[in-house]
Simulated scan of single mutants.
Amino acid sequence: MKPVLKTLLATATCAALAVGTSACGGHGAKTAPKNAKGEATVRIMVGGLDKQIYLPAMLAKSLGYYQAHGINVQLSDEPAGVDAETAMLAGQVDAVIGFYDHNIDLQSKGKSTESVVQLLQAPGEVEMVRTDEAATVKSPADFTGKHLGVTGLGSSTNFLTQYLEAKNGVKAGAATSVAVGAGSTFVAAMQNKQIDAGMTTEPTISMLERKHLAQPLIDMRTAAGAKTALGGTYPASCLYLTTAYVQKNPDVVQRLVDVYVETLHWIQSHSAAEIADRMPADYYAGVGKDVYVKALDNEKGMYSPDGLMPADGPQTVLTVLSAFDPTVKGHSVDLAKTWTDAFVHKAK
Rank of each mutant, 00 (worst) to 15 (best):
M1E: 11
M1L: 14
A10H: 10
T13G: 11
A15S: 14
A16Y: 07
S22I: 04
A23T: 11
A23K: 14
A29R: 14
T31L: 10
P33E: 05
E39D: 15
M45H: 07
V46F: 01
G47M: 02
L49E: 00
Q52C: 03
I53D: 00
Y54V: 14
A57K: 03
A60R: 02
K61H: 12
S62K: 12
G64N: 07
S76V: 15
S76C: 10
G81Y: 05
A84G: 14
A87F: 06
M88V: 04
V93C: 09
D94C: 03
I97K: 02
D101E: 08
H102Q: 14
N103T: 14
K111W: 13
S112D: 07
T113R: 05
S115A: 15
V117W: 03
Q118V: 15
Q118I: 14
L120K: 11
L120M: 12
Q121R: 12
A122L: 07
E125I: 00
V126N: 01
E127V: 15
M128C: 01
T131Q: 13
E133I: 06
E133H: 12
A134Q: 11
F143K: 13
G145K: 12
F159W: 01
F159P: 00
Q162F: 11
Y163A: 01
E165G: 00
A172L: 12
A174Y: 06
A175S: 05
A179T: 08
F186N: 03
M190K: 09
Q191G: 03
D196R: 15
D196E: 10
M199G: 14
T200E: 10
T201V: 08
E202M: 04
I205Q: 11
E209C: 02
A214N: 02
Q215D: 06
L217N: 03
A223R: 15
A223H: 05
A226T: 06
K227V: 07
G231V: 13
G231Y: 09
G232Y: 00
G232F: 02
T242H: 13
A244C: 13
V246E: 07
N249T: 13
N249Y: 11
V252R: 05
V252K: 08
V257Q: 10
V259W: 01
Y260S: 08
H265R: 15
Q268S: 11
Q268H: 10
S269K: 15
A272M: 07
I275N: 02
A276I: 11
R278N: 13
M279H: 02
A281V: 12
G286R: 15
V287K: 09
G288C: 11
K289T: 07
D290I: 08
V293P: 00
G301V: 04
G301E: 09
Y303D: 00
L308H: 08
L308W: 04
P314F: 13
T319R: 15
V320E: 01
A323Q: 06
F324A: 09
D325S: 06
K329V: 05
L335M: 04
K337P: 00
K337C: 05
F343D: 00
V344L: 10
K348Q: 07
